[in-house]
């Protein structure tokens, strides 16, 4: 019984998490690189072309992992911000701050790759009024709004608390993005794998996609750890543990 709260508290301790990040970072980075290279080979070389779209379907191997991480990233950011807000854990806010620009980048990537695929497939880069496209764009604005809101405060504690509210409120958008293709008639197609039914994609095309999703997730984690270390250093720049750590590394 005594062990559990202690284990929990360690996760709120910046030195502990900084050290863990330092240890995991190279592994995550290497594993992400290998997985993405393997998935890209599978997707670009091993997977057969689609019967209708030919080779242009292969953008799925970047688009779907990016879109997935854009939503997963926002959910994680909101959960971290909520934990920081409720239990006043500064490290949780640091996690949310670290996720924001990375999640925004994946959202941007999902929008851009979707447009590149949409031009030859649908006949247009972008359709105003398509619910899936609109809510994904809103997600990008939520990320950017979170960052802009933070930047408008001098005081970091105040920025943490106010921006956490925006992050938590915005999370309603995530299920809306997911179900938009089922609730409204959209140009964007329905779910291929994220449904209870069997996937509407053959295994030789699906396998590289799953590898790419794993690789992108590892890459996301690696990027977040990088930023989190920076964020911890910035927040704790005159803490004694950090000085000891720096001397040990030197």
């Amino acid at each position: 019984m005594l062990g559990l709260p202690r284990w929990f508290h360690r996760w709120a301790s910046p030195p502990h998490v900084y050290e863990l990040a330092e240890r995991w970072r190279p592994w995550l980075g290497g594993l992400a690189l290998l997985t993405i290279l393997g998935g890209a080979y599978g997707g670009l070389v091993l997977a057969p072309p689609d019967y209708l779209q030919g080779d242009s379907f292969r953008i799925i191997y970047v688009h779907v992992p990016s879109a997935y991480l854009s939503m997963m990233g926002y959910t994680l950011m909101a959960v971290a911000a909520a934990i920081g807000f409720v239990w006043r854990i500064k490290l949780a806010h640091a996690v949310a701050v670290s996720i924001a620009p990375i999640g925004a980048s994946f959202t941007f990537l999902a929008l851009v790759t979707g447009g590149i695929w949409g031009r030859p497939t649908w006949g247009t880069y972008w359709e105003w009024g398509d619910a899936r496209l609109m809510f994904e764009l809103l997600l990008l604005f939520l990320y950017l709004g979170y960052m802009a809101l933070r930047a408008s405060f001098e005081d970091r504690d105040k920025a943490d608390r106010v921006s956490a509210i925006l992050a938590v409120v915005g999370v309603v958008n995530v299920p809306i993005i997911h179900y938009s293709v089922e609730w409204w008639s959209t140009l964007h197609q329905g779910p291929t794998i994220a449904k209870l039914d069997t996937p509407s994609i053959t295994f030789d095309m699906l396998a590289p996609l799953l590898v790419m999703i794993a690789g992108f997730t590892l890459c996301f984690a690696w990027l977040v750890l990088n930023r989190l270390q920076g964020e911890i250093v910035e927040r704790e720049h005159d803490a004694r543990w950090l000085r000891r750590f720096a001397e040990a590394v030197r």
């Binding site: 057969p48 689609d50 019967y51 379907f57 799925i60 140009l187 197609q189 509407s200």
Partner: peptide, 18 residues
């Protein structure tokens, strides 16, 4: 004024489609 093609959620190689 404009015609767009909606793609469905099915992905399969030509041999399977055939």
């Amino acid at each position: 004024e404009e015609v767009l093609a909606k793609h469905d959620e099915n992905y399969r190689p030509p041999a399977v489609a055939e």
